[in-house]
């Protein structure tokens, strides 16, 4: 075995109704000349990303569903080994928001009980089509004691930040230490500013 080049490995999952943007959160599908139709057709299974949190080098392995959520067949095997779950809804679709509660129940049933969850209200670039207010998103997150953020996979708003925050929450849990909410990770400043404007 080669020497381990990281301190911790966190396996993260994306979950939520079909169409809310889970695949886009993970896979940009940039439609420029560089993205081959080939790769877009095959699709992506997972990504490995390295982040530095509190001096620790952490590998994030982020998985997308293979579309099982459409048939409500997300079961124990998908959740196996998951330490963090991004629960995604679409701010322009009421139903996807209402189903957050169902997904939370599904997670309770099938996932490891101490899995760290975070709710994402995605597509926040579509302010004109919004039907779920940010306040409602925050309220449901508070009610279930999980973190919340509005994101846009399309405009690349809060995506990296969301994963860093989820990783931070898992780290906090594993080490049992609470940290200051500032200066968590090297977050893209530009994304930060957009946050305030858009979401």
């Amino acid at each position: 075995m080669a020497k381990k080049t990281y301190d911790l490995l966190f396996k993260l999952l994306l979950i939520g109704d079909s169409g809310v943007g889970k695949t886009c959160v993970l896979f940009r599908f940039s439609d420029d000349a560089f993205t081959t139709t080939f790769i877009s057709t095959i699709g992506i299974d997972f990504k490995i990303k390295t982040v530095e949190l509190r001096g620790k080098k952490i590998k994030l392995q982020i998985w997308d569903t293979a579309g099982q959520e459409r048939f409500h067949t997300i079961t124990t095997s998908y959740y196996r080994g998951a330490m963090g779950i991004m629960l995604v809804y679409d701010i322009t679709t009421e139903k996807s928001f209402e189903n957050i509660v169902k997904w939370l129940r599904n997670i309770d049933e099938h996932a490891n009980e101490d899995v760290e969850k975070m709710i994402l209200g995605n597509k926040c670039d579509m302010e004109d089509k919004r039907v779920v207010s940010k306040e409602r998103g925050e309220a449901i997150a508070r009610e279930h004691g999980v973190r919340f953020m509005e994101t846009s996979a399309k405009a690349n708003i809060n995506i990296d930040k969301a994963f860093s925050e989820l990783a931070e929450a898992i780290l906090e849990k594993t080490s049992g230490v609470s940290v200051e909410p500032v200066d968590r990770v090297t977050v893209d400043r530009r994304t930060d500013r957009q946050t305030i404007k858009c979401c």
Binding site: Y6, I42, G43, F46, K47, I48, Q61
Partner: peptide
């Protein structure tokens, strides 16, 4: 070991391999 990589994406499986 795939976790040796700093940042990398893996495609869905095609005939026992991933791009």
């Amino acid at each position: 070991d795939i976790y040796t990589f700093e940042n990398l994406g893996f495609s869905n499986t095609v005939e026992n391999m991933k791009y």
